Amino acid sequence: MTTPLTITAATTESMRELGAAVASITTGGDVILLSGPLGAGKTTFAQGFGRGLGIDGPIVSPTFTIARELDGRFADGSPAHLIHVDAYRLGGTAYAPGQNSVDRLLDELESLGLDEELGEPGEHTVILMEWGEQMAAALAPERLEIGISRPSAHDDSGVAPTSDGARIVTITPCGGDWDSRLTALPR
């Protein structure tokens, strides 16, 4: 793992632009993990990522469907098959005796038919997984981890926090040729 890249996304649109920029450097077989608290901007990033792949359909959080599959094109024009996964609801509390949380998550992915796609994406498939950090090492030793945080919106104004405001995005390459590809991202 190398030094993470930190980018500030000042607006919702800049978060989408960052998602599109990351999509422009992806290739088939890539796994990208998004993490951050509720409301951090993971789905907004995913919308930009979909835009960057030329996907026409809406990109919405797959929280209740667990995964959505959409087709577009990589930057080189080759077909792209996006599997957008939301692992938030995976890994419930009911474990078999001796089963650890990663094994439980992998079992759930298998029951959904996603284990093979996630373990070894096809040559035209890219995985974009929200809330997947708990199974990162088990799924993909080569991956791009994107952590999104929101600086504290708490102040003395009495105004409730909104989805507006800057986000701090930390992009960490893990294996593969991610280091060289990240040089193409705007700083």
Rank of each mutant, 00 (worst) to 15 (best):
I83A: 09
H84L: 10
V85D: 03
D86F: 01
D86M: 12
Y88H: 11
Y88L: 10
Y88A: 08
R89Y: 11
L90I: 12
T93F: 13
T93D: 15
A94L: 15
A96I: 03
G98W: 10
G98T: 08
Q99R: 11
S101P: 08
D103H: 06
D103V: 11
D103F: 02
L105Q: 05
L106P: 00
D107S: 07
D107T: 08
E108Y: 01
E108W: 01
L109F: 07
L112H: 03
G113A: 10
D115Q: 11
E116Q: 08
E117D: 10
L118E: 02
L118A: 14
L118M: 15
E120L: 12
P121T: 03
G122C: 09
G122T: 11
G122F: 11
E123K: 00
E123A: 08
T125V: 14
I127L: 15
L128V: 11
W131I: 03
G132S: 07
E133K: 07
E133P: 00
Q134R: 15
Q134M: 15
M135Q: 09
A136K: 03
A137C: 04
A138G: 14
A138F: 11
A138M: 14
A138V: 12
L139Y: 09
A140M: 02
A140S: 15
E142S: 13
E145K: 02
E145Q: 12
E145W: 00
G147Y: 01
G147F: 00
G147D: 10
I148W: 01
I148E: 01
I148H: 01
I148K: 04
I148P: 00
S149G: 14
R150T: 15
P151N: 06
D155C: 03
S157P: 03
V159D: 13
V159S: 14
P161V: 09
T162L: 07
T162G: 13
S163Y: 13
S163F: 10
D164A: 12
G165D: 11
A166F: 03
R167N: 02
R167S: 04
R167E: 00
I168D: 10
